[in-house]
Design a protein around this nucleic acid. Structure first.
Lengths: 206, 206
DNA sequence: CCGTTGGCAGTACGATCGTATTGTATTGAT
DNA sequence: ATCAATACAATACGATCGTACTGCCAACGG
């Protein structure tokens, strides 16, 4: 047996390099050679770990999803109750516009590829549905206003967060502004919770 | 003098072909040759009308913006008052997910290019700001609830509409669902206006 | 201790890209 | 009628792409 390396880890490293390139130059800038250079390995090695460019792109899309889920998951880590969790999830999505520009940008780039690639499209759908279900469940557990339908409101919340993230990404508004909008919206549909104190996106006044 | 043709019109035709390709195959699928084939002209003609690929892409981005503005403009055409206009604008943006998939998809593809190309980035910023200002003005003229700040609420509205458009594009929800969400949101901040009757996106019951 | 297996780099090759160049047809002014 | 300018097509060319192929080195099993 030869030297053993962590196959999955190597694939992740290379996929990460691909995502970085994707965010920097767009999907068109993602070539095998560029990816190899960005990852600091040889072109041949990329071939060794990926069957082809399509395989690399698919793996990158998966890594991309995991990356975003990790970001959101970290933000939720020490939440106090479902309402706070919901708030943190939405703020995390909005915050992607600054804290995770690479995944967000790469996500947009891949969106145009989701048209041609059914697997990536399904990945998007599955990811979106999962977030939607999670938000709806969180919403239902936060004793919302009586006229709020969790499923519908979850779509509104998710849409709002995604749209605001894009706005932040383009520099149209700041993260704080977007966060305030989310909080304002949440306060309307969650009458019971207090005004969102202890913002998780900025450190408290110590 | 040689045969005279409408230079601008020819450029628009070719740019439109580029946008169609962009929506179908993503930005990576937009090559001079493919664009020429899609437009039904020779590769040399594309060169004749565009200084290079970058020029073609820039022009396509401009055409893309005009296309979206045209779509929204048509939806607003026979609106009754600022509140109705605002509603139609938002529904038009949301409706892009089905009625103008090509511009919307192409827009996403170009977004990743806006990172590398300052001109396209400025185009995005300018377009977003213009829509934001328009929405804020419409909002202020619709006698909103007293606790509504037009500028902030415009960001929320625009974000919501954009996010919902993406959701519609990905098939997460239908246009009608998204439209209902927009209406619901509008009803909350515009207490004076009646429930949005006469949906402009679907024909009335005759 | 050695051979086989897999990590890894380098090169080769056909296809395709963007662009430069050349050629031809057409039209309007002289 | 002729000339010049332009629309348009076709080809050529260098660069780069993705992929295939070859070779070397390291390390575990026997």
């Amino acid at each position: 047996m030869p030297k053993q390396v962590d196959h999955a880890a190597r694939r992740q490293e290379i996929a990460h390099a691909a995502l970085r390139l994707c965010a920097r130059d767009g999907l068109a800038g993602v070539t095998i050679g560029q990816v190899a250079q960005e990852a600091g390995v040889s072109k041949g090695l990329v071939q060794h770990y990926f069957a082809g460019k399509a395989d690399l792109l698919r793996a990158s899309a998966h890594v991309l999803r995991e990356e975003i889920e990790r970001h959101v998951g970290e933000a939720v880590q020490d939440a106090r109750g479902p309402a706070d969790t919901l708030r943190r999830v939405l703020l995390a999505i909005v915050g992607l516009g600054v804290t995770a520009v690479v995944p967000l940008l790469a996500g947009h780039a891949f969106l145009s590829r989701a048209v041609a690639d059914p697997e990536i499209r399904d990945l998007y759908r599955a990811g979106g549905d999962a977030v939607h279900r999670a938000i709806a469940a969180l919403l239902a557990a936060s004793d919302p206003a009586p006229d709020v339908d969790p499923g519908t409101e979850a779509h509104a919340l998710l849409g709002l967060a995604r749209g605001l993230a894009d706005g932040v990404l383009l520099g149209e508004l700041g993260v704080d502004d977007a966060g305030a909008i989310v909080d304002h919206h949440l306060r309307r549909i969650l009458p019971g919770v207090p005004t969102g104190s202890g913002s998780p996106s900025s450190q408290p006044p110590e």
